[in-house]
Amino acid sequence: MFLDPWLPDFSFLFLSILVEGAPFILLGTIISGFIDVYLPSGAIDRLLPRNRGLAVLMSGLLGIIFPVCECAVVPVIRRLVKKGLPPACAITYMLAAPIVNPVTFLSTYSAFKKIPLEMAGSRLLFGYVIAVIVGLILLKVGVGRILKPRLVEELKEVESSHDHHHDRGDNFVEKNNRLIMALRAAMRDFVDVGIYFVIGITIVAIVNTPPPVDQQTIPLRDYIDGTAESIWGAPAALMGLSFLLSLCSTSDAFIAATLDTFSIGPRLAFLVFGPMMDVKLLFLYSTILSRKFILILAAGLFIGIGALSVLLEPVFEGFERNKPPPFAQTAQD
């Protein structure tokens, strides 16, 4: 039968990605719900430096204080933007937080046993620099060209209402109602984001399921291994792989560690590009950003990260040169 075993395999993969990612989305949307109800508009903006450049630099470090992976960060950012966080700062945080956070640092440190500090540190720095560069560029771009039109409209409404603000006070609604409102907002966001997440993971599951008609089709991984010696092809291929695999940033380093036919530059490109842009994120970002901007962002990240990984390859190569030769066994389990 045409759909057997394709459909069971697809369903198996679909559910595996769903149960892995959904708890993180839930975490993000619960934070988002509470931000919606309890955080006054503009509060975040007031916490950041007035100088926009400094604000972007600081936004790139917020993941250290609020460590969230890429699935959780999207609903949080969506709400923070509505609360007045400048889009340049929001996107800097969005891109940096899945990498510049202690959980990702530790997992990268654990995965690369030979050069742990070098890889974890390089990844963190690489991710931070890319996120800040994007943020600084976005300071020069109008909000209307970044955010999706509906969000821009909502922002305008909030801004116009500020012009004739009146203080409602904390007693405006009962406190228990606020909890209901927060959880209601959280669920709304969860469903909003969940719909886009499903589209993303459907594509990821299809890519990872053997095609139903030609069982001899070569898996993506085998094509990618063939590019390991190419200066430009290797980072491009690994960024493509990270895009399609849509791994969680907290554990993708363990995959990167197995890609050791590749040099360090392409593997860092894999570790930086994946948490910033992958198939499921493409759809999650659609809840905040305009489609045109997402495409430009994806292309810019692909080119920027790829180019930087190639340019810095001589530096990365030095990491391994300074280490003793191999031949020692690792314990499994």
Binding site: D36, V37, S41, V158, S160, H164, H165, M181, A182, A185
Partner: peptide, 15 residues
């Protein structure tokens, strides 16, 4: 709490 009216909740001051 589906049927419960609690307002839209967040702090958007409105005209």
């Amino acid at each position: 709490h589906a049927g419960r009216e609690v307002g839209c909740g967040h702090d958007h001051s409105h005209e």
